[in-house]
């Protein structure tokens, strides 16, 4: 396997996937790197599709292992703390953090599996790849995605509709 080429091609997307799931850049970097260490360590060989699926599935399991609900909330608070008094952050920064917090809040109301399925679908994965990653029937993916997005939309308010 050309490890370097595979890394260059897939690492940015894997990091982004982990970051969307966890909201923590340091943890995401750690998890994405660990997935590649395991790729190397377990002598994974396969097609482009197979390697991509394996990496994202491994990262999904790593996130599950290392980022449980209680830990999730704690880290989210750390990642998006209430701005301390004193130096005022730029309005743009405040607004961006608020937008992120709104998205995170909606995601928090979803199940772990719903979050993973949404992230994978919006990262371009096929129903079969999603089914393989989260251990559900491929024939159920459409139904579960539709439900996940309905749950998300019932909580989330886009910028400009929050008040």
């Amino acid at each position: 396997m050309n490890f370097e080429a595979t890394f260059e091609e897939l690492y940015p997307g894997l990091f982004r996937y982990c970051h969307r799931l966890t909201g923590d850049p340091d943890l995401s970097e750690d998890l994405a790197q660990e997935a590649f260490v395991r790729l190397y360590d377990r002598q994974v060989e396969g097609t482009d599709e197979g390697l991509r699926s394996w990496l994202f599935r491994t990262a999904t399991h790593l996130v599950r292992d290392r980022y449980r609900i209680g830990e999730n909330r704690r880290r989210l608070l750390e990642a998006h703390p209430v701005e301390p008094s004193g130096a005022e952050p730029p309005d743009e920064t405040v607004q961006r953090k608020e937008e992120v917090a709104h998205v995170r809040e909606a995601l928090e109301h979803m199940t772990e599996r719903e979050r993973e399925m949404l992230m994978m679908r919006h990262a371009g994965f096929s129903y079969r790849e999603i089914a393989e990653a989260v251990d559900v029937a491929a024939s159920s993916v459409g139904t579960l995605l539709a439900r996940a997005e309905r749950n998300f939309a019932s909580i989330y308010r886009p910028p400009g509709e929050n008040g």
Binding site: R16, R20, P25, A32, V100, A106, H122, F152, P158
Partner: peptide, 15 residues
């Protein structure tokens, strides 16, 4: 809507 919302989360570039 979900796609747009998820892009809001991309606040960090790959290191």
């Amino acid at each position: 809507l979900v796609a747009r919302a998820l892009t809001q989360l991309d606040t960090a570039a790959p290191p």
